[in-house]
Structures are given as structure tokens and as C-alpha cells.
Amino acid sequence: MNENVLAPSAVPAGGASWLHRYANPGRFLRLARPCLPWLAGFSLILTVTGLIWGYYFAPADWEQGDAARIMYVHVPAAWVAMAGYAALAVASFFSLIWRHPLADIAAEEIGPVGAGFTFVCLVSGALWGKPMWGAYWVWDARLTSVLVLFFLYLGHIALIRAFDNPQHGHRAAAILALVGAVNLPIIVFSVQWWNTLHQGNTISISGGSKIYITMLYPLLISSLGFYLTFITLVVARMSASIMEKKTRNLLLAAAERS
């Protein structure tokens, strides 16, 4: 392929040809393969470090004692659940507007992984709620909106595979993912907008995180580990999906020749 294609004159009408040129599945596969062992290694090291630090070495909380250690799995899972859905919405956007094959593959592979992290968030949250609040589950705005996130993931997983024509599935699922993205700000701000049993946000990007530094470090390491694990899983699943499609095409072509 001609590499000197960035010249404006070489870009055909539509303006998004760079996307097709630099994000085609074959190129993705070539880029992903050498990265995957590194991604997997860093994910494992950071996740294991964060969880062991939180479980054994972080101090107990003044108010919640050892039960606060559930934070080191619950909070990273919740963050990844939301970031994963944001990634799903972005992929759906590219899938819907540009019909990009890589975006379709991404949307298909993000769904199940994101749903898994949301499930971990819900279960660890229930196991935290029972000893501290006195209830596994309450229907407050934060818990309900995260349960809705879980159902949005499940709906997306089913919808993207529900049509004989994969294009139709990708289109319908992309619409669902984008409509559902309205739930993300609801989750984040639910604890500010309404009275909830769930406590307010501890970490704020604009400074003043209400957590002592020896508890913040394991939380950040564990979160970084969860984020990297999510990325690794999605990249590996996307690569596998591309290779499966290649194999199918080769077998089809061979069948047609004979």
C-alpha cells in the first residue's frame, strides 16, 4: 500500500478514509500480536499486587474495619464496568456512522467482558452492603442504575448476535449501546442528585479525594490492573475474532474452488 497517503489530495471524499487505512482488521492483528504478552504480563502483575496489597497490607478503615477491603475489588470493577460501556458506546458510534468492521468486532467483544466486570461489581457490592448497611440490596438510585447497566450489557450481547445478517445485528446493537450511554452520567451523579443509601463519591479528579494515602495506593494499583486486564481481554478476543473470520473466509474460498 502506498504509505504517502496522508496528503490531503489523497484523501477521498468522506474524510474518514484514514480510519479504514489505519484501523483495518489485518493491521490490528499485526499490531496486537506483539503487544498482547506485555499487556497480559502488566495486567497480571498490577492486579495481583493491588489485590494482595488491599487484602493483607492496607490498613483497616476507622469506621468499617476490615470490611472496607472489599473496596479494592468493588471500586475497580465498577470503574471498569463504566469505562467498558463508554468504550462500547464509542465503538458503536464508529460502527454506526462509518460502518467500520473493526468497530463492529470491538463492540461484539467488549459486551461480554464488560458484563462480567459489572457482575463482579454487583456481587462484591452486595457482599459489602450486608455487613455494613444491613442489607444485600436496596433500590436506591446508585444500585438501580448499575443494575440497569448490567441489563444494557446483556441486551447488547443478545441483540448483536440476534440477526442472521450480522450487519443488522451490529446496527441494532449500536443503537442500543448509544441510547444506553445516557445511563453513565446517571450512575456517576446519582449519589449527588438524590438521597441514596450508597455513600457519595470518594475519589474526585478535581482534587480532594477523601481517602488516606496508604489506602489510595492499593486502590489505584488494583484499578490500573483491572483496566489493563479489561484491555488485554478485549484485544485478545478481538484478535481471535479476526483470525476466526480469516479462517472461515479461507475455508469458504477453498470450498468454492473445489
Partner: peptide, 28 residues
């Protein structure tokens, strides 16, 4: 409760990683 929450997370991460690795190797 604490051990349960950690167990659920670790089992999920291990299981989904193993499944993904198997699928990736198989596809390759």
C-alpha cells in the same frame, strides 16, 4: 463477606482469562 468478594473477583478474572487464552490459541 470479605473473602467472598475477593473470591468472586479472582475466580471471574481467572476464568475469563483462561477462556480468552484458549480461544486465542485455538484461533491461531
Amino acid at each position: 463477606f470479605i473473602n467472598g468478594a475477593y473470591a468472586v473477583s479472582v475466580i471471574f478474572l481467572a476464568a475469563v482469562s483462561a477462556l480468552t487464552l484458549a480461544r486465542y490459541r485455538n484461533a491461531t
